[in-house]
């Protein structure tokens, strides 16, 4: 089983970190994984995207041209990549920044109010973690425990104080979703 994920947004939205956390979590689960960032001269504000491939077998190409999961953090990213999603794939939309509705009928769409949910916890800086939480909850591509373990390993020393907030951001969408289901 091979899963291909493409995520895109503005530089500075933490798209690369999101991809790295996902790849790291997959590795901790014993999977084969590749992470491939777009790279360019823009440090902030330009477009940024990265591909993550997760598989039980050796991965040949790290390039994702037909993602099973697309994460669009801003509107230009959705415009650019929606058509590339594999048939019956998943599209995660940062509803805080994307007003447009998807054109594709054959895919599953998950609108996530990333920025609002992130602000309620800390600030928009962790909107990417909110989105990652939604992706792993809805797709099951890796477990929340694995991502939690990644955070414990990555945020060490002074950075460890960020762990509780990030853990909260990771589950805020699913908590919200559960609340909605109960209502």
């Amino acid at each position: 089983m091979t899963q291909k994920v493409l995520m895109a947004g503005f530089g500075g939205q933490g798209v690369m970190l999101m991809g790295e956390l996902l790849a790291y979590a997959a590795m901790l689960e014993g999977k084969q994984v590749t992470y491939m960032p777009s790279y360019g001269p823009e440090m902030r504000g330009g477009t940024a995207n990265c591909s993550v491939v997760i598989s039980d077998e050796e991965i040949s190409s790290p390039i994702v041209t037909e993602p099973a999961i697309l994460i669009a953090m801003n509107e230009p990213s959705m415009e650019k990549f929606e058509k590339s999603i594999a048939p019956s794939g998943m599209l995660f939309i940062n509803r805080s920044l994307i007003r447009r509705t998807p054109l594709r009928q054959d895919i599953k769409c998950f609108p996530v109010e990333c920025n609002e949910l992130a602000r309620a916890i800390l600030s928009e800086k962790i909107a990417n973690i909110v989105m990652l939480g939604a992706v792993i909850c809805a797709s099951g591509i890796v477990s929340g425990e694995s991502v939690g373990e990644v955070m414990r390993r990555k945020f060490v020393g002074k950075k460890s104080k960020f762990i509780p907030m990030n853990m909260k951001a990771l589950t805020v969408w699913s908590d919200h979703y559960e609340d909605e289901k109960r209502q």
């Binding site: 994984v33 590749t34 992470y35 491939m36 960032p37 790279y39 790290p62 390039i63």
Partner: peptide
């Protein structure tokens, strides 16, 4: 090449 330099793998 740049692909191998920029990508991540376990």
């Amino acid at each position: 090449d740049g692909m191998l330099g920029q990508m991540m793998e376990p």
